[in-house]
Write a protein that binds this DNA or RNA. Sequence first.
DNA 1: TGACTTAGATAGTGGCACTCGCCAATATTG
DNA 2: CAATATTGGCGAGTGCCACTATCTAAGTCA
Lengths: 212, 212
Amino acid sequence: MRISQLAAATDVPVATIKYYLREKLLHDGVLTSATQARYDDSHVRRLKLIRALIGTAGLSVSATREVLLGLENPPESGHDLLGIAHHAVTRTAPDDVDLSSAQTLLDRWGWGAETCDRDTQAALVRALHGLSEAGFDAPAALLDRYAAAMQDIAEADVESVPTDSAEAAMQHVILGTLLMEPVLLAMRRLAQQSASFQLLGGTESPRQSGAQ
Amino acid sequence: MRISQLAAATDVPVATIKYYLREKLLHDGVLTSATQARYDDSHVRRLKLIRALIGTAGLSVSATREVLLGLENPPESGHDLLGIAHHAVTRTAPDDVDLSSAQTLLDRWGWGAETCDRDTQAALVRALHGLSEAGFDAPAALLDRYAAAMQDIAEADVESVPTDSAEAAMQHVILGTLLMEPVLLAMRRLAQQSASFQLLGGTESPRQSGAQ
DNA sequence: TGACTTAGATAGTGGCACTCGCCAATATTG
DNA sequence: CAATATTGGCGAGTGCCACTATCTAAGTCA
């Protein structure tokens, strides 16, 4: 398979494939001469994965590279899989936030603070801080309810990880974490619309697309 | 309050404030002469809100402008509030996706398809499509479990909306939708880490920040 | 043989969120 | 009142990012 065929098979422009090759997101094809290389199904799969991570999950190119690197070199610990996926989506801000408020919440929800990544805790603190800065006071009861729902989801996540193969587990955890986020958010919005229609009552038909 | 004091009070550079003024994110101050204007607490609050929407929620400047516009001109229908918030976070891709698969899911989850915004349905379809393109087959049972959890959350969302004032409801819905998303995602990651530690068992201490 | 394709490298594009510099007009300070 | 600092308004520049275009030498295929 030549590069133009790879492009046709994945609907990705040739120039973009070359860019991914340069950026080491996509592994090189087999050179058959100085100006020809062969690509195969592994490139097709990889390219679709790259597009999903960049397009659907919204990762940056460098974060995508790290995730793919993790997929190829699975860590020994079964727990570290998550770290790779979580690190990719956690906006790492070097400003050290105060994690004590996170500790309190994690204790309350029964999530061992010592088993949780500091960056992720910082992400929670930053998100809550942004909320309060904007003048939104989230009642503790509401947060607790959110936490219970997310624990449900996380348990489903962890239980659904295949245990037979390390590679399969790796793939599952990373994709299940990264690519499921937009699914969950879309679900929440749809559920909100449904719930608001039932409780608040829509006076007329809901707002449809063309809002511009 | 002069612009430099406004900058000091919000920790936003003067040049950036001027940029927000130009982009109509921040309302003008009261001109006291050709080259002086006064700002007040409303500007401080607005600026913090802008920063939260752009920084925490990750909105673009133009999406932020639309949200702020919606905050000032609340729609009559109580249901349309959501549309403004949801439109801001929904990557509007002009490619018309096939919504029939979404209809099936919405029916199964008891969310009236006719009460749901098309853009949001399209977002769900696109997210699920990205998932399958990457080689991740989400079992229906898993999606159902996710949907149940998100319905819990959405009900909590809708119930917590204050009913006394239209402005308060507006503010609550928009911030609760947009700024809560990063909170929820961080919660899911923490819950995953906690659950994975308990079920899969971490062989050693979890991966801590410095992954670079 | 001659039209077409490719690897590899360099350079350019468009969008975004700022950021800078300037100027005339004004405010503040001594 | 004079010297200094600040401001509104505006055009232009910056840095980053994800591509995208172009070029050349070296092939492939009919």
